[in-house]
Nucleic acid binder design. Structure first.
Lengths: 303, 303
DNA sequence: TGCAACTATTGTCTAGGACAAATATATTTA
DNA sequence: TAAATATATTTGTCCTAGACAATAGTTGCA
């Protein structure tokens, strides 16, 4: 028997949303404790998590809750297009992730890292695998803890791999982080690896940095670029609410780069924000920045 | 001009709390947009963050907002006792963190890791430094992005250091994570290092795992122990709400260990939960587990 | 078929009331 | 004086019920 605050945490559904679903659709229908406060059963929470998944992948709550959505069949969109091109190696890795075969997964990843080198490993293995893992999770083929476990593995490997790269540094100095509410840090790590491979100086703040602190950090470290990673799951409305605030408060000579699966949600409406549509665009984007040689700002670098 | 949802994210104050402070104390007093929705100024948000800090360190909102609290002077409790014993090396590291001297900090940490070895490095440097960083932040001597940056550094170093330890494994198999709402993962990484040094098998799920998934993961991986890290800042009421739920849903033969600065908040009221009061207790606790030899469960290990 | 106008759905916001838990203060007892 | 108990205040979270903008889906028209 769980109170509404716990259910909010467990499911990611706002209290307001839980209440209005109850009012509109008759589900969930929690019992009340002696104070009249809602208390939810574990079963309800389980179903809510399921519904949340479907809603996140594009279905409408009204229909899902009414039970008018077939359960497993392909959550539209993704399917026919994406699947055919899955590389054989990546597909095999996905199997290991789903099985949560820790040892095997670890061995396979390390081996392929050694074989391909960091750049190709990131672009051809981790990036597509991360996308597939996200999709599998959305389809319900992978548990949340399975996804967590994968994230930890990728995190460890990328960090270890990147540890050796901090050598010769050239501008731009890039501040890396995610918006508040965006807990996925893998994209950030991938980006950091690729930027480091271009000898750019990266400063990572980890995930979920409040806007005000991004601005402060950019000034403090005299970053020429602030790069944000936005995952598929990130709320589009939230994104369009936060970005203008950030852009406006950031020094106008500081560039703002947006990458990740969810970056496209920021459409092209927004001025002063560069979309880095894929990881392979990072190198060209840095090259372009260097080419444009935007007045050697505050600090001068020695090559 | 920020809407209430953004302010909630930026400050960590619930919408309900923002509204009731306005009603009761007259601050914040946001303007309204054309729909009558609250919009906050950047200054208000700044002050709210300041107030939040003071409240978290024990002051009462009513007084703080009325301005009846002197600004900087020592937020009680911590002070006379903690300071005297700060090791010289750690104090120097703290200075680097505050200066956000990335290169120097990195060098100093790596050097000391090499000098002391992982175990002592964790126990004598990272652990006390993390505590100091947390306190400095609470006192307002360190910005949030300063804390983020430190967390990233520590994260990178500990992960890299731990990467080499995955060799001979013996029980118990330990599942590591934090509760939903607890984003601090450093304690987890430190614990993982120390556990790995005892040759225990660790499975880290990263931070903020929903209760249901901890239970599922523990079963899936047949973990004998679930270990949670709780930071100082974690809400005590939340902790006492979540732990019984977890304990109850977890297999009764699975032990639940609680560590971190905030673990003490779970007092001794709770049955079936072991407090690991400090990092140096980890080794003895594992030894004790092995000594008790709780019926060689499901799977048998070969030494 | 393509585009504009209309309708339905949905999440988030509002107000103001209530109450339990935590904390502070006053009073009594040892 | 110190400790224990009772009373008062403070505080966050929950409640109901109404409103509306933004998005998604549907219809009508060129």
């Amino acid at each position: 028997m769980l109170p509404i605050s716990v259910v909010e945490r467990e499911t990611g559904l706002a209290k307001d949303t839980l209440r209005i679903w109850e009012r509109r659709y008759g589900f969930p229908k929690p019992l009340r404790d002696r104070n009249g406060d809602r208390i939810y059963t574990v079963q309800e929470v389980e179903r809510l998590r399921h519904i949340k998944r479907l809603v996140d992948s594009g279905f409408r709550p009204g229909k899902v809750i009414a039970g008018r959505i077939a359960d497993s069949p392909n959550p539209r969109s993704i399917d026919a297009e994406a699947k055919p091109r899955v590389d054989h190696h990546v597909a095999q890795l996905l199997v290991l992730v789903k099985r949560q075969a820790r040892r095997e997964l670890s061995n396979a990843l390390l081996e392929q890292l050694g074989e391909l080198g960091l750049r190709r490993f990131v672009l051809e293995r981790i990036a597509p695998l991360t996308t597939l893992v996200g999709e599998s999770w959305a389809r319900g083929e992978l548990s949340i803890h399975g996804e967590h476990l994968y994230a930890e593995f990728a995190n460890g490997i990328l960090r270890t791999a990147a540890a050796g790269l901090e050598t010769a540094l050239a501008p731009p100095r890039i501040l890396l982080t995610t918006l508040p509410g965006e807990p996925h840090g893998i994209g950030l790590l991938m980006a950091r690896c690729l930027m480091a491979l271009e000898s750019a100086e990266t400063i990572s703040l980890g995930v979920e940095t409040p806007i005000a602190d991004m601005v402060a950090a950019a000034e403090k470290h005299e970053a020429q670029v602030v790069a944000l990673s936005v995952s598929q799951a990130f709320n589009a409305a939230e994104l369009l609410k936060l970005l203008p605030v950030l852009r406006q408060r950031l020094n106008s000579t500081t560039q703002l780069w947006l990458g990740g699966q969810g970056a496209a949600k920021a459409k092209l409406r927004l001025r002063g924000i560069a979309l880095v549509t894929s990881l392979s665009e990072i190198a060209p984007t840095i090259a372009a920045w260097r080419g444009a040689a935007p007045e050697p700002t505050h600090n001068v670098y020695k090559a």
